[in-house]
Design a binder for these strands. Structure first.
Length: 974
RNA sequence: GCCGGAGUGGCGGAAUGGCAGACGCGCUGGAUUCAAAAUCCAGUGGGGGUAAACCCCGUGUGGGUUCGAGUCCCACCUCCGGUACCA
């Protein structure tokens, strides 16, 4: 019985922790160091936990258990991100209300997490689907709704940092005189247009198969991320959040954060800030009668006096460019097909062609647009615009390579210096004027060369780099960077342009046509005919939460009308105190909403007065360590930071950034698979002669014949290494594939944590996942690796427990004698290494250090109890169950969860004699033993006397001897 | 294409510019056993040499810096992840 019995021990200690509320975070203690460690909370899917979850959870658990033993107060909560599609789709199929399914899944997840022995404070658990939680999600939405962004506001936050731009209450929005004059309704509409949460009629990605509108982020290659269904673009009234206003703040805020450079750059790229200029090109008034060139002169002088207007007037096309220095090379303009000026600029002769082109563009899904990306298409409108810098008349085209959603939806085309414009100009024989001279030693890039074209008998390529201005009037000879600054200044002076910043980031499409999401706390005013007027009334704060109605049917309506539109009348309509009929907003919030602020709620989960008490927020925030999968590196983190910054601007939270340190755990792949290929008649085909193909069920074909090949799983003894690759043992010309794949049901390589715990125990699973490799690396699973760590725990057990006894008793080898110097040295080396490794999150090496300890102690006939006790403490964050059990067998009556973490003594680390390497000319030739504290002369002398070294020094002169005390000796000889 | 990251034994992976391959898996041999499981001990990068001593080669490729490079610099190759008409 006293063999290491994981199941018995683990159940015992999990019950103990539960009963004693061992990991409940108490009231915040002033002056005691705090640590807030958070896992990205899971979506409780019906499949239960997979082995990827415990990877991050174990890492945070180790950090927390370690921190508690160091005397810190630790906040380590867990909850559920439980709104989302799967529960709704299950409801559609079975009629089971999503709340029921969700609850069941949460129960499974909780059971599994407890089974793994994580030290969460379960008293703080909540789900985003709890009305008491989403009450505050709705409240935060109202904060966004009731605010606008003032880009000019300069202010100093509670963190003492100066910022420009701030969210302010909508009541403080300055109303232009014109609008004030138009009356109350106009003012309300104006406010609506400026809110951080606003409604917008926009082409959205409608997926009829899912019966919903999708965010750009939910679409991959023009198909839905979920289910791979086709997506088309249709116009719809949608909720948007004005995240673009926070573009700069979201970039600047990254600076002080302890995040990997790669995630920071991922976020920066996503935001995609670019600097350039907006420039107005004169097109004349709508029914221009006088000559365009003459009108242009008048316009120029008017502009010189009035300056550049905030909004473009009707007589100009406003463009955005990052290369204002190429203005002289603009030879045509392009509008996106959706641009509002297309109609008025299209002359009668071109109407038909333009209309046809627009139709085609509108029908194209994103997929088609990218598919046809190779070829440039477009139509001339028949109209011209005037280049403000040189008065040149240039034709205005429409083309779908210009997107309505970026910049101003219109561009000036400079074919000589932009690859896309070049392609278009070549296609439609438009003039190409070079205005930037590359440096003398310039070689065209691959992309540029690919576009090489013969024009007028001469081979020419576009040039998209920087250089010196030519054909640019007074600016000739200027360097690109200087020219940009200079011309931007000139444009402002002449009132025809200004410096501008653009973002790749778009405003956040914040509504979904789902049942299983947070309802919006918004009512729409209806007019006498029951039509939506565009004016809105928020639910008063005190009436929150707006709960979901009971529905009989969860099916999508099949139209973009959300399922909530079939809610009972009394949920959908009400008459306000002033007699206005109101209709409830029937969209719901996206799944991101709940995860945007859950980290705040954990600091104060039961507060009925506020989303989080300010004091609690100040005490616990920011999150000191946040660990989760890389799939959230962009969106979740960007969205949560955005909400947080708005709350910060409005004074609801006091720290500017929510997540101080972020770590992305790597993905765990399935076991490595060796795959061979065979034709139908059973002949082997080399993996180098096959390729993937959708044509046949096997998914692979032989390249030469195009015939399908079947795939065969091989055992490791059937293959051998050959160079970089593997081949069959029987035939070294037949290469086979060797790689690990993502775990998936389809591939059948999913590892179930329940199974692993059943077989090996939770401690083994925890240690194995940490031992696999660096936390952030992608790593393949290996069942035999689990045997290894399981053996290690068995060895630890036998260090202390007498297996042959009936009862769990201390082994006779464990004594109360004073530890030997050697045992102490081993212990203190281990303490030092493990402590430092935990701090670096280098958990795989921490475990290997403990293995070394175990191996060394196993050799000792008599083992000091004191030494073993300290070791058990070191092991406890990693394998808490076995550690608690051993701790109690060692004679302790209380949990070790709050025992002081062992401290190493530097003086005990030193060995008295060390073996140091001796090199000659940098090559290792021998090793000599010297006293650890030997000085340079002694070391050099010892090295020179070494037999082998003498041989290498014979007949040579020592030019130089490099001696590093305690480390090495190197002789440079001639 | 662009932006990140990574290339080290049969495998997962270690190495503040200072003994490459810690630790684990796998494999080989041995002990224990009637036998097995479990456990313990020894060996295990490649080549040469007598399975000794010892020597040569070796961290994707080519160059460089350095007394000394897996580690730093330059160029390139391959793989993985993200992204893509963003003006």
């Amino acid at each position: 019985m006293p063999r290491y019995d994981a199941k018995r021990i683990e159940t015992k200690w999990q019950t103990y922790w539960d009963q004693h509320e061992t990991f409940k975070t108490g009231e915040f203690v002033e002056g005691k160091e705090k640590l807030y460690v958070l896992d990205m909370f899971p979506y409780p899917s019906g499949d239960g936990l997979h082995v990827g979850h415990p990877e991050g959870y174990t890492a945070t658990d180790i950090v927390c258990r370690h921190a508690r033993m160091q005397g810190k107060q630790v906040l380590h909560p867990m909850g559920w991100d439980a709104f989302g599609l799967p529960a709704e789709q299950h409801a559609i199929k079975t009629g089971t209300p999503p709340r029921i399914t969700t609850q069941k899944n949460i129960d499974t997840f909780r059971r599994q997490l407890k089974m793994l022995g994580f030290s969460y404070d379960w008293s703080r658990e909540f789900s985003t689907t709890d009305p008491e939680y989403f009450r505050w999600t709705q409240w935060i939405f109202l904060q966004l709704f009731e605010s606008w962004f003032d880009p000019e506001n300069e202010w100093t936050g509670p963190d003492g940092k100066k910022r420009v731009g701030r969210a302010r209450p909508i009541s403080e929005l300055p109303i232009p005189e014109k609008i004030k004059f138009a009356g109350e309704e106009a003012i309300r509409h104006y406010q609506n247009r400026n809110r951080l949460a606003y409604q917008h009629e926009a082409p959205v990605n409608w997926c009829s198969a899912l019966g919903t509108v999708l965010a750009n982020e939910e679409i991959i290659d023009g198909k839905s991320e979920r289910g791979d269904h086709p997506v088309e673009r249709i116009p719809l009234r949608q909720w948007m959040l004005r995240i673009t206003k926070y573009g700069d703040r979201l970039i600047d805020g990254l600076e002080g954060l302890d995040w990997s450079e790669s995630i920071k750059s991922l976020q920066k790229n996503w935001i995609g800030r670019s600097e350039g200029a907006e420039v107005d090109f004169f097109i004349g008034s709508e029914n221009q009668t006088t000559d365009l060139d003459q009108a242009f002169e008048t316009w120029k002088s008017t502009r010189a006096a009035s300056g550049f207007s905030e909004e473009p007037e009707a007589d100009v096309l406003r463009i955005y460019t990052t290369r204002p220095d190429t203005l002289y090379g603009a030879t045509y303009m392009v509008l996106s097909p959706e641009h509002p000026f297309v109609d008025r600029l299209t002359i009668a002769d071109q109407k038909q062609a333009v209309e046809a082109y627009r139709q085609k563009a509108a029908l194209k899904s994103d997929l088609d647009r990218t598919d046809l990306a190779k070829e440039k298409t477009g139509v001339f409108t028949g109209s011209y615009a005037v280049n403000p810098v040189n008065g040149a008349r240039i034709p205005v085209w429409i083309a779908d390579y210009v997107l309505i959603s970026y910049g101003t939806g219109a561009i000036m085309a400079v074919p000589a210096h932009d690859l896309r414009d070049w392609e278009f100009a070549v296609e439609f024989s438009l003039p190409i004027i070079p205005v930037v001279q590359p440096a003398d030693n310039y070689e065209p890039s691959k992309d540029e060369l690919a576009l090489e074209t013969e024009i007028d008998g001469e081979k020419r390529t576009p040039f998209s780099g920087m250089g010196t201005a030519i054909h640019s009037g007074e600016f000739d000879g200027m360097k690109t960077a200087d020219f940009k600054k200079q011309i931007t200044a000139n444009l402002i002076e002449q009132g025809v342009g200004k410096g501008a910043v653009n973002y790749r980031l778009r405003d956040w499409l914040f509504s979904r046509q789902h049942f299983w999401g947070e309802p919006f706390p918004i009512w729409h005013e209806l007019d006498a005919e029951g039509k939506i007027t565009g004016l809105m009334r928020p639910d008063p704060e005190e009436s929150l939460p707006v709960e979901l109605p009971d529905l009989k049917e969860y099916k999508p309506t099949g139209t973009p009308e959300p399922p909530l539109s079939s809610a009972p009348e009394e949920w959908l309509y009400k008459t306000d105190s002033d007699g206005t009929r109101l209709y409830r907003e029937v969209n719901s919030m996206p799944q991101w909403a709940g995860s945007c602020w859950y980290y705040l709620r954990f600091a104060d989960p039961e507060n009925n007065e506020r989303f989080v008490d300010l004091r609690n927020e100040q005490n616990w925030l920011p999150v000191d360590l946040y660990i989760g999968g890389g799939e959230h590196a962009v969106l979740h983190l960007l969205y949560a930071r955005f909400w947080h910054q708005v709350l910060f601007d409005l004074g609801h939270v006091t720290c500017a950034e929510p997540f101080q340190k972020l770590v992305n755990q790597g993905m765990i792949l399935g076991d490595v698979e060796l795959t061979g290929f065979q034709t139908a008649d059973g002949t082997w085909v080399s993996s180098k002669a096959v390729e993937e193909s959708d044509e046949f069920d096997t998914g692979w074909i032989e390249k030469s014949s195009g015939k399908p090949v079947s795939i065969l799983s091989l055992e490791s003894d059937q293959v051998q290494k050959q160079g970089e690759d593997f081949t069959l043992v029987d035939d070294s010309t037949i290469y086979v594939n060797s790689r690990a794949y993502k775990m998936s049901k389809a591939r059948g390589n999913v590892v179930n944590p329940d199974f692993v715990v059943e077989q090996y125990g939770a401690d083994s699973l925890r240690i194995y996942e940490m031992f696999m490799g660096p936390l952030e690396a992608t790593k393949p699973w290996s069942m035999s690796g689990l045997d290894g760590v399981s053996r290690f725990l068995g060895r630890v057990w036998r260090l202390m427990i007498e297996e042959r006894d009936e009862e769990v008793t201390l082994s006779a080898a464990v004594t109360d004698d004073a530890p030997s110097e050697e045992q102490l040295r081993i212990l203190h080396k281990t303490i030092k290494a493990v402590t430092e490794d935990i701090e670096k999150l280098s958990l795989n090496t921490a475990i290997s250090r403990m293995m070394e300890f175990t191996n060394a102690m196993g050799q000792q006939k008599s083992r000091s109890k004191a030494v073993l006790s300290e070791f058990v403490l070191l092991l406890s964050p990693f394998a808490p169950h076995i550690a608690e059990e051993l701790w109690s067998v060692l004679g302790n009556t209380e949990s070790l969860a709050y025992q002081p973490w062992p401290i190493y003594d530097e003086s005990l680390l030193q060995e008295s004699i060390v073996e140091i390497p001796v090199q000659v000319n940098g090559k290792l030739r021998s090793k000599v033993s010297v006293a650890a504290d030997a000085d340079q002369a002694t070391m050099q002398q010892a090295a020179e006397q070494d037999e082998t070294v003498v041989k290498f020094l014979e007949g040579k002169t020592i030019v130089k001897a490099i001696v590093i005390p305690g480390r090495m000796v190197n002789f440079v000889v001639k």
